[in-house]
Design a protein around this nucleic acid. Structure first.
Lengths: 203, 203
DNA sequence: CGGGCGCAACCATCTAGTTGGTTTTTCTGA
DNA sequence: TCAGAAAAACCAACTAGATGGTTGCGCCCG
């Protein structure tokens, strides 16, 4: 385990290298040797600090979730809600690793539990509860369904770049193209949020 | 190449086995030996008919796209539009392979062209044009952005089952849970479509 | 009889993880 | 304050098994 500042620095280097490698190649396609090369740290240190490849992958997912939680605040007001889809989209645009890692993880584990099950569940439950307050919705389960729809709306194009590129055309990869996509997604998010707000106002 | 009925049957068996294997494990995680085992066909036949692992993966993507194109019609009317998100969702619910394969492919190739670039592009352009007619939208690029939003809405939960399970709770995997999710996604799709129809009616 | 199909064994390379050390850093007791 | 011991960190080489792809043959059918 990394117990000294020097060890912590080594661990950080390994996590950063692993994040890039797993984001690009996923669990199965990533190579431990390449992670060591990218980090400039001996491969054996990976096993000393993390145990095995799967545990390293899990540590990377925790790291990027921590970053997103710190960077994109959970919306607790109506205005926060309106901004949320755009913020998630911008986060993916700027830091492309989390959404890819989430997708690699989902495809890899499918119906099996993820290593980080409890922490992740707590994170999502916390988000859903906050969203139910912002939406004025009594049922956090309903808020959770809205949440997953909004997250899906903002995240989907980053999972399937081939679909985005071929469906939206070559101009889609310009700044203007991204802005059009972003504006459309935000508008769609707004109409979803507005319809839920209307619905909860009449309940 | 499979030139006789017997050869065609072998090729079909290989493709079906490959579809299951690639859907579960992706390009990097799939094993050619396991594909042979699942199909009951000798491994050497894979190389005789497809050339290599990547070409087999591409053939599987073509196969599942052909199936989806035949099963979920491109909406050309307003009613067709309203039904579309639910149809995509139901398609994924019943045949879970395509959406996973699409995601594996997207993550794997990222910004690089896919092997099946031209056919896929034609398929998407065809869809976007049909959608622009159904939406009464002059610009197929705008229709394409709506299309990718609707597809994302319907597809996202199938890519990230861990997020669905932990965000929506354990009941989400019951028939009732799936129906609630489905109804919410359809409702969201409707408000998106309605807002675009309103927008294009006032243009 | 030739082409298509099929087979088990094989090959060269790759891979996650381990090993048997060395080096560096920290701590403790004199 | 320093020397020595112990702990932490580090290394290159290794291991056992896995892997995509190939080979040299035999069988079947038109």
């Amino acid at each position: 385990m990394a117990e000294t500042p020097k060890g912590q620095l080594t661990r950080t280097k390994l996590l950063e290298a692993a994040q890039a490698e797993f984001s690009e190649h996923g669990m199965a396609g990533a190579r431990v040797d390449r992670i060591a090369e990218r980090s400039g740290v001996n491969k054996q240190r990976i096993y000393a600090y993390f145990g095995n490849k799967e545990a390293l992958f899990s540590a990377v997912l925790s790291k990027v979730y921590e970053h997103m939680g710190a960077t994109v605040p959970i919306p607790t007001t109506e205005d926060g809600l309106r901004a949320y889809v755009g913020q998630v989209f911008d986060y993916h645009r700027e830091f492309g690793d989390l959404v890819r890692l989430l997708a690699w993880e989902g495809l890899h584990y499918r119906d099996r539990p993820i290593p980080d099950e409890k922490d992740r569940e707590a994170y999502y439950v916390h988000k859903a509860v906050a969203l139910s307050i912002a939406l004025g919705v009594d049922d956090p389960a309903e808020a959770a369904r809205v949440l997953i729809a909004l997250v899906g709306l903002a995240s989907w194009p980053f999972i399937v770049p081939q679909q985005r590129r071929l469906m939206l055309g070559p101009d889609s990869d310009t700044d203007a193209g991204w802005e059009l996509l972003r504006a459309g997604i935000i508008a769609h998010g707004h109409v979803i949020i507005d319809s839920v707000l209307r619905e909860s106002a009449t309940s």
